[in-house]
Write a protein that binds this DNA or RNA. Structure first.
Length: 582
RNA sequence: CGGGGUGUAGCGCAGUUUGGUUAGCGCGCUUGCUUUGGGAGCAAGAGGCCGGCGGUUCAAAUCCGCCCACCCCGACCA
């Protein structure tokens, strides 16, 4: 690749709109450009890196026996009505009509499509197991696109689907993908954690996310260094510690004029937040439900959805308070609360000497105890774990870190096959719905995650496996014929050695070339300058740091080859090998 | 959707408060000469529906209204 002949519009200054490192640097390195909010064009170098991620994915998928297909982006409404998701997916699905007025969705995911494809073409247990995947553009009209490639509205995703005859076989397929995904993220050069994830209301208990730790990550992961437990805080369990014991006095009503929040009430009564019962009223499918947590905690609505068995709920709004005048905003409490189901967080088990709303404006109750002064209909885990909470497995304190979710896998079971009548016939002539799994990797997001983990002040520092090239050849003075010729020769021979080389053949000053090289982050750099003229030596340097070494130009390709091999054993791609069939 | 911010040359910005010649600066770009190990120097140039529409005014980048786009925060804490 010649710099002079390739579109690599590097930017000296940061675009004002880009705040996080990956976004800023991918723009500055001339790898991509923004089209609209959450929508990007990939330029030559960006596409190369994106393709390298894809190649790693293909390689691992094929090795695991999955087969690549390509499905249409446009999906007919009727298909999505079969699963009920035409309604349910809401405005997040981009939609359009053809000239005849027929509705289509721009695929945000392809469960319906694949289920339809398979039910039409697979009918016998003899054709199972089956694992199909694609790498394709996806559309999701995100509430708030942000962070460049991390949360886009149009993005590249690998989505895969497994079809098995029974649960055991499905678990086996799932396990296989679990392992493949681990290898994929690792080969891309990312540190990552596999964490237990919420399945939403999809059903089944099993889902994992592959999370790349990064400050800008939108997920929070709770994990235990002692035993290895790791889960998204949406789902993470934690051990409750007993509240400090208090006085056993009879409940008493006290005036708390204008004190509504836990903070205000706690401060006013000189009681720590954990001794205040926070009572949240939700409207759940038209019925009010009270949810209790201690004042130092927050209700975890993902967990709550699971407990309620529906996601059709929301916190009381102005109009709801008006509709239920018995509940007094700011002063609701579980003691004496009527006509409402009460769900209490596990922490409240055995809670005594608590403060709660008195269900009377400007009054709270003190010294209330669970069991005596208030009851719940159900004790459940409805609050979020946080830093320092006890691990549910081993009891050691857990940590919470931010992570970028680069992949998620689900055991779907018959969630789609059943309503869509995707059936196979077993050896006894019996029909059964396919046992499915679904597996997604955000390809463009993964690339951004790599950039997020691998950069410094000056620019990107690509891991070899996804770098746009292996070697960056920099002749400093293009006016010197000897330098130019030697650089050209090196470019030539390195290519013959199988290296991917970018030569900066522009007539630019040394400073410009160095700065751009830092920005692009190609792993190895060969500089030909004064020392080359004087002694015939090329300076070889790694972008990730380390010593510079001087060596004759002829020795560079072999040396780089060796460094590549030791830097990343995984660089040797097995792409192109025939898939392993089972 | 709520709140905040920003739209002026390819990029980064000033100018807008207090309306007034020809709208500026740095980088980049073009041409020539010089230069060549960390974003070179000199000289000469090109490049703007000042986000859009409407209004006020003798006069609008600047004031008013509506709209659009982009960015940030939030969209659960009683």
């Amino acid at each position: 690749m010649r710099f002079s002949a390739t579109l690599i519009p590097t930017l000296r200054e940061s675009p004002a709109d880009a705040e996080i490192a990956s976004h800023r640097l991918l723009l500055r390195a001339g790898m991509m450009r923004q089209v609209a909010s959450g929508i990007y064009n990939f330029l030559p170098l960006g596409l190369i890196s994106l393709e390298k991620v894809s190649r790693i994915i293909r390689d691992e998928m094929n090795r695991a026996g999955a087969q690549e297909i390509l499905m249409s982006v446009l999906q007919p409404r009727e298909l999505w009505e079969e699963s009920g998701r035409w309604e349910k997916y809401g405005p997040e699905m981009m939609r359009m009509q053809d000239r005849a007025g027929r509705d289509f969705g721009l695929g945000p995911t392809h469960e319906e499509m694949i289920t339809d494809l398979v039910r039409q073409n697979v009918t016998s247990y003899r054709q199972l197991p089956l694992n199909l995947y694609q790498i394709a553009v996806k559309f999701r009209d995100e509430v708030r696109p942000r962070f460049g490639l991390l949360r886009g509205r149009e993005f590249i995703m690998k989505d895969g689907y497994s079809f098995d005859r029974d649960e055991e076989a499905m678990r086996h397929s799932y396990q296989r993908m679990y392992e493949s995904y681990s290898r994929i993220v690792e080969r891309c050069g990312c540190e990552f954690m596999v964490v237990e994830a919420d399945t939403g209301l999809i059903g089944g208990d099993v889902s994992h996310e592959f999370s790349v730790p990064a400050a800008v990550g939108e997920d929070k992961i709770a994990f235990c260094r002692a035993c290895g437990y790791a889960a998204n805080v949406e789902r993470a369990e934690y051990g409750r510690r007993p509240l400090a014991s208090g006085h056993d006095e009879p409940p008493e009503m006290v005036q708390t004029p204008g004190k509504r929040s836990v903070e205000e009430v706690g401060a006013f009564l000189s009681v720590p937040a954990e001794r205040v019962v926070k009572c949240m009223i939700y409207l759940v499918e038209d019925r009010p439900v009270a949810v209790l947590v201690t004042g130092d905690r927050e209700v975890n609505e993902t967990k709550l959805a699971k407990v309620l068995g529906t996601d059709k709920f929301r916190l009381f709004e102005e109009k709801d308070w008006a509709a239920y005048p018995d509940y007094i905003s700011g002063y609701v409490g579980p003691a004496g609360l009527k006509g409402v189901q009460i769900i209490g967080d596990l922490q409240l088990e055995g809670a005594r000497d608590m403060v709660c709303g008195a269900n009377r404006k400007d009054f709270h109750l003190v010294h209330v105890a669970y069991g005596n002064d208030f009851q719940v209909d159900r004790m459940a885990d409805v609050s979020s774990a946080r830093e320092g909470d006890a691990c549910p497995r081993c009891g050691q304190p857990m940590s919470v870190v931010a992570g970028i979710e680069v992949a998620q896998i689900f055991q779907l079971r018959t969630k789609y096959s059943e309503p869509m009548h995707a059936l196979y016939v077993d050896e006894h002539g019996q029909k059964h719905p396919f046992m499915m799994g679904t597996y997604g990797i955000g390809v463009s997001r993964l690339l951004a995650a790599v950039a997020e983990q691998h950069h410094d002040q000056r620019g990107l520092i690509w891991p070899v496996a996804v770098a746009p090239a292996h070697l960056h050849v920099i002749p400093l003075n293009m006016a010197e014929g000897a330098v130019r010729d030697a650089a050209e020769r090196l470019y030539q021979t390195a290519g013959e050695w199988g290296l991917e080389v970018l030569i900066d053949d522009r007539d630019e000053s040394a400073g410009v070339k160095f700065a751009d090289a830092d920005l692009l982050g190609i792993p190895f750099r060969a500089v030909l300058g004064k020392k080359f003229l004087a002694e015939g030596l090329v300076e070889l340097q790694s972008r990730s740091g380390g010593e510079k070494e001087m060596l004759p130009a002829a020795g560079v390709p072999a040396r780089v080859k060796g460094l590549l091999a030791q830097d990343s054993p995984s660089v040797t791609s097995t792409a192109g090998e025939s898939p392993v069939w089972e």
